[in-house]
């Protein structure tokens, strides 16, 4: 009886419980559920035929191709960086380490628009390297390389900040044991370190990829919006929406929404697997 009473006293009444659940679910439905449903409803509002046509028209297809290309460059580049940075930071002691970690986080503090602007200042027609690039007939801004650079910038910290705390928590005893038993550096990395960080790595890659494919502000500044040439999927959504071609805008938007759902699905799966295998995830966003 006594334990029964104590348990009741640390619980809210039924009415309050239901009220709080109601507020939370109502809020999430209004701000997350409804928009998600609306993307697909709007995309299919004029039927499957128009939906399909909007996806296979040349501009949409080239936007999909460009988005895939940009992610295929930006994600591996940041992956290599993330591994190098976390190896140096987690496995060694050196001066200025915390400053380095702060610098790695910088791109998260910068507005997407400013992220794009800095590359225009460097490589644009009036930028530092503008005259030299023009003289050599190299176009970076309002072209694909600028889009890739801006995307690398905004997705820069994702993998590194996932791996650094993970590898710091795991310490370096296992690697030291491998090396003292005669393993080379690469062998140690592939056979000891990588298996230990695989879920954290995958987690970072998934989030990095979602942002790389979905980035809008930074890419918008450096793209120049040349249809069929420098428009990624989010830019294609913007252009068609501003032309009141809502079916086309929401059709491509629905692909991006699917990507978001797949990302969340894999993310949950990775979190579950990591928990099962005892590999702590940092869970940074």
């Amino acid at each position: 009886m006594a334990t029964q009473q104590r348990r009741i006293s640390t619980r809210e009444s039924k009415g309050i419980t239901l009220l709080l659940i109601g507020i939370a679910l109502g809020y999430l439905f209004l701000f997350l559920g409804l928009p998600l449903i609306a993307v697909f409803v709007e995309a299919l509002s004029k039927g499957w035929d128009l939906y399909w046509q909007a996806l296979v028209e040349p501009d949409a297809l080239s936007a999909v191709r460009l988005t895939l290309l940009v992610a295929a460059i930006a994600v591996p580049a940041n992956l290599v960086f993330g591994i190098a940075a976390s190896w140096a930071i987690a496995k060694f002691e050196f001066k200025g380490k915390s400053l380095l970690i702060t610098f790695i986080d910088l791109p998260f503090a910068v507005s997407p628009v400013v992220s794009g602007l800095i590359y225009v200042l460097l490589f644009g027609a009036q930028g530092w390297l503008g005259p030299w690039l023009q003289a050599h007939d190299i176009k970076l801004i309002f072209a694909v390389p600028g889009i890739v650079l801006a995307t690398i910038f905004v997705t820069f910290p994702f993998i590194a900040r996932e791996l650094i705390p993970l590898m710091q928590a795991q310490g370096k005893e296992e690697e030291e044991a491998a090396v003292s038993l005669g393993a080379t550096g690469w062998q140690t990395f592939w056979r000891v370190t990588l298996p230990n960080i695989k879920w954290g790595l995958l987690y970072g890659v998934i989030l990095c990829n979602a942002r790389a494919m979905g980035e809008f502000g930074a890419v918008s500044v450096v793209s120049g919006h040349i249809r069929g040439m420098t428009t990624t999927m989010p830019l294609h959504v913007e252009i068609t929406y501003n032309e009141y071609n809502f079916v086309a805008a929401f059709a491509v938007a629905s692909l991006l929404a699917l990507l978001a759902l797949v990302t969340l699905g894999i993310k949950s799966l990775v979190e579950w697997q990591a928990k099962r295998s005892g590999e702590p995830l940092h869970g940074a966003h």
Binding site: L28, L32, P35, L36, A38, V39, E42, P112, L207, A210, M213, G214, E215, F216, G217, M233, P234, L235, V237, E238, Y241, A249, F250, A253, L256, A257, L259, A260, L261, T263, L264, K267, H285
Partner: peptide, 15 residues
Amino acid sequence: VDLPFALPTAVAGIV
């Protein structure tokens, strides 16, 4: 709950 991290901002904007 993490949907806003995963959904491209342009999609959120138009919807």
